[in-house]
């Protein structure tokens, strides 16, 4: 999608609207299943935003990993652990006001930083999947390998924890 055109502007507002509305749903919905599905919508909205940024590879990964894997995982988690009434499964705690104030002040600081900083716009460029792949195997080889270990650790961990949960019951 070409940057600057009317289509682009429209797409941006539409997608960010969807994203933020869905995200609000994730946070404010009382039903955990609804939240989980809205989370998936949020992720898709973000994938759309990546498209408007001409980061197609990112968008694809976002859609596949986040909307696909993560959101599905969350839904499974919800299903596994909740058998009582779903309609009040996602209640807020007693810190609503404190939480709101804290979140607002952090966002306020961030918004100030975003608006008051003179960003050096213009040098950026479109990144291809090939660029990314090359970087993974050259500069970023150590973290790439470390992430492989991390996924292995998570795998082992999930097994260990699951086994433990079973042994316990």
């Amino acid at each position: 999608m070409e940057n600057g055109g009317l289509m682009h502007t429209l797409a941006f507002f539409l997608l960010s609207g969807i994203t933020l509305a869905a995200a609000m749903g994730v946070v404010f919905k009382r039903n955990l299943v609804h939240s989980a599905f809205l989370l998936s919508v949020t992720f898709l909205g973000v994938a759309g935003l990546y498209m408007t940024l001409q980061a197609e590879f990112m968008a694809a990964v976002q859609a596949l990993v986040y909307s696909g894997a993560v959101a599905v995982l969350v839904v499974i988690g919800v299903m596994l652990t909740h058998r009582q009434q779903m309609s009040r499964s996602n209640p807020p705690n007693k810190m609503l006001l404190v939480g709101a104030l804290a979140a607002l002040s952090v966002v306020g600081a961030i918004v100030w930083a975003i608006l008051a900083t003179p960003w050096k716009v213009g040098k950026g460029s479109v990144v291809t999947a090939g660029d990314i792949g090359r970087r993974f195997l050259t500069d970023f080889a150590p973290p790439f390998e470390a992430v492989a270990l991390l996924l292995l650790a998570a795998l082992i961990g999930a097994v260990v924890l699951f086994k433990g949960g079973k042994a316990q019951s």
Binding site: F140, P142, P143, A146, V147, L150, A153, A154, G157, V160
Partner: peptide, 16 residues
């Protein structure tokens, strides 16, 4: 990036 991944590898192992 290396910093972040290092932190997470350590932290993940500790979670478990």
């Amino acid at each position: 990036i290396t910093l972040y991944v290092g932190i997470e590898l350590m932290t993940f192992s500790f979670f478990i």
